[in-house]
Amino acid sequence: MNELVHGALYGTLIATAILSTIAMGIWFERKFAGRMQQRLGPTIVGPAGLLQPFADIIKLLQKEDIVPRDADRGLFDLAPILAVVCSLGVAAVIPFSPSIIASDLDVGVLWVLGIGGLMVIPTFAAGWGSNNKFALLGAMRAIAQSVSYGVPLVLAVLVPVVLSGSLSISGIVAWQAQHHWFAVWPIVPGLPAFVIFFLAMLAESNRIPFDIPEAESELVAGITTEYTGAKFTLFYMAEYVHTLVGSALGAALFFGGWDGPFAPGLHWMVLKTLTLFVLIYWVRWSLLRFRADQLMRLCWTWLTPIGVALLLVSAAWVTFGGTN
């Protein structure tokens, strides 16, 4: 019972914190993207354009809710909700400090991979339910991409698991706090594993340079082609939540999570998460979109073999006692 209350309380807190970070994240992305292109970004709405995300959301909620005539109503309505749930669900097992964690699952890594992998379902529900050729094509691309990049993602996540001997994310973070951050030492499986994790996470959340599922020049807007107003808002949010939670996961698995000197754990965790978040936007606004075949080639001929090799190296590291 105590655990339930704890989970509900912290879960709500973390979810609220994430969603409010998202609003600022949208503002930050537009400002940052603007500066990268030597523009200003939002300036007119509110001081320094700070109120821009709120104006966007207020506007989107007022828009007409269009459901295409031949759409699969159930799937069409369910998809955006599922998308937010799946992307927020991952946050449940991520420790933001030694005590701030919604649910300290023993198999946290499995939960993350499972719930993260479920994103395929809302994606395809949206594509199929819209009854729109662009949406369906986008959904099919997204699934091909998610399923493929799931493999290097799992391999990369397994490296910290093997090194620390724990499937619980708070266990992994605690291990790192005791010894070293995995991105720092052992550097050979650690840092490359983080790079693979980072790329696979970008691909899983359909971000540039892996955003072929919603390539505007080819597919109008991919799976969200038929979504208006509030439902589109949910998809929009889910994308940002996915990115933010992915950053938090990367920080926890490879950069020691809440571990850091001088300041409380929460500060460090937030700092690391936001750094990765910024890194994602930096990549997003710098690179071009991959072609579908290049995307698959990168996954299957580079990331997956390297991932397997890294897993073997980390197994060898543990076996031959290089642990400490």
Partner: peptide
Amino acid sequence: AASRVDLDRMGTIIRATPRQGD
């Protein structure tokens, strides 16, 4: 929409689908 005038200053972005345009 480009740098010199920058419609994004007033919150205007260009969406490719009619469903999300105002």
